[in-house]
Amino acid sequence: MSDPVEEFAATVGDTDPVVVRGAGTRWQVGGSPVAEAREVQAPAGIVEYAPEEMTVTVRAGTPISELHAELGAHGQRTNLDDEAGTVGGSLAVGRDTVHRRGRGLARDVLLQARYVSAEGRVIVAGGPTVKNVTGFDLCRLLVGSLGTLGLMAEVILRTRPVPATRRWLAADGVDPHIGRGARTASAVLWDGATTWVHLEGHGVDVDADARGLDQFHEVAGPPPLPRHRWSMRPSQIGAIDPAATGPFVAEIGVGTVHASEARPRPVVDDGVRRLTEVVKQQFDPTGRLNPGRDPLAA
């Protein structure tokens, strides 16, 4: 049987502009793909899952919901966002979940990628094991690259145990930083008035932390998140200007602010811009991969 990754590479080819479509949930991040580009889709399906290795091999076009349903049956999950569409799309955009402080970053979930290069070749970046420093860490470069350096076809991801106990708590009018004292807090959110804390871990530990947060009461879940994302130093959260952001939900201790208003275009250092351009030039000399998407604007 032929390898779906090789078939995908053949479809991508080596000449015309292509855009890779996942579920299209974050289609506008970093700009819209140009209309003339040919649309391609990465293959789907879980290839191999070894719970005792805490790794899973999955094709990039697989819906995250499908992946997490399979992992969940073995008490595991990945750090990718359930709200995102496909595995490949989520990695290409590289956004973290609100549980970043407790569960870690999206960029650290990728162990190995088989991707299709601008020349239509299948390239392996990284390695299959949970620990690996063999050669340059191209996987980090691929996460958040919006498919502009290569098109991910099949990836090996790090999985993690789903905690035994999970609980959302909320309180009005408290110092939001109080939630940071809770060691089992995977997320602390604040909208300027209400603070939400998500506790997860051993039941005894979650109970102990919940007792310490005596002004909080249990709630069903987090607030809805406004659609734009601002990024600031965690220590600057208190300086949020609601006149600029509109209604917001800030991640305490992380610095991501989910805002109703679009973020001002970030200032990009000249050196970073030059490096970004030469990296792009090296990996995609003709600019055929996802034209219109700009990681510097993401």
């Binding site: 970043r100 130093r233 990009v268 993401a298």
Partner: peptide
């Protein structure tokens, strides 16, 4: 130090 900086993860 902010959670997301523009561009590739250089």
């Amino acid at each position: 130090v902010e959670p997301r900086t523009p561009g590739y993860d250089l």
